[in-house]
Amino acid sequence: MMTAIVCLTGCGKTQTTLEYDEAMIEQETEFLINYCQNVDSDTLAQWNDQNEFSKEYQFMMSGLKFTPDSFDGAVDSWQAGIKECGEYVGHGDYTFEAKDDELTVSVPAQFEDRDATIEFVFDKDLYLESMTVSAKFSLGEIMEKAGLNTLLGMGTVFVVLIFISFLISLFKYIPAIQNAFGKKKDEKKEETKAAVSETVEEVDETDDLELIAVISAAIAAAEETTTDGFVVRSIKRRPSNKWNS
């Protein structure tokens, strides 16, 4: 049994760490820090105007294991750190932490307004993946930021609740608005009905006049006289159209 355990232990996966050259890594990080510290806006604009192939060619010729994306990201992170911590003053000793597929290099740095930690991350081929500048805040500053974030969050919630309450309070005016629109529709319907009735009456009067003229002509023809001798005062319609026997 002991022999089997020893054999199985020997067949297990061996944990290895990434091998690297500290001097080479420090040279690359120092180059990056010095470049970010001394580059001006014109040089940076010229660099950004270059294409990916030109950037990669310059890295290859200089022997630096950078990629255009990681290098540009490092420059942006440095500029953000300058805005937050002030101008760069110097840095301390490097600390290396290697894993099987990654190398992390960190160094404490001093800036005019506050201290920070610069961290470099390299992949398993020792190409730069990222560089970050993390400002160091005191406990009071951390508590102040936490308090401001809490107030901002709670304030936003209360503002939204007040707005929702205001909207709910307006619901009581909805029936009145609906009634007002309903009255307008009823008035329009009544006006339409009145106009139709007037039109029907005018049509009926026109029909009656024509009917009177026809009856007058028929009577005059039957009496062999003219229509001047009599006047039709009114015409009453029978309730049924059937002839009485």
Rank of each mutant, 00 (worst) to 15 (best):
I33W: 00
V75Q: 00
G92K: 00
E198H: 05
S62L: 11
D42N: 09
G90I: 01
V231H: 07
K13M: 13
V105Q: 02
T150G: 10
N179C: 03
K193E: 15
D186V: 04
H91L: 09
A194K: 14
S216C: 14
A220W: 12
Q15T: 11
I118A: 01
Q178V: 02
M1G: 06
F120E: 05
R237F: 07
E87A: 13
D42E: 11
T17K: 09
E112G: 02
L161S: 13
S54T: 15
W47H: 13
I219D: 07
M24E: 10
S70C: 07
Y173P: 04
C11G: 06
L18T: 04
G86M: 13
N179L: 14
T3N: 04
Q27P: 02
Q50G: 06
E84T: 04
Q27V: 03
A116Q: 03
A176T: 09
V75E: 01
T227A: 07
S197Q: 14
D93P: 04
L126W: 00
F166P: 00
F181T: 03
G86I: 04
L103P: 07
Y127N: 14
T9E: 04
Q46E: 07
T225Q: 06
F66L: 02
F181R: 11
R114V: 00
D42A: 13
Y94N: 03
I162Q: 09
D204E: 01
S216Q: 08
K193M: 10
G92L: 03
S54C: 05
S62G: 04
A220S: 14
K55P: 06
C11R: 06
T29L: 03
Q110T: 07
Q58C: 03
E198G: 12
C7Y: 09
S234M: 08
I212E: 08
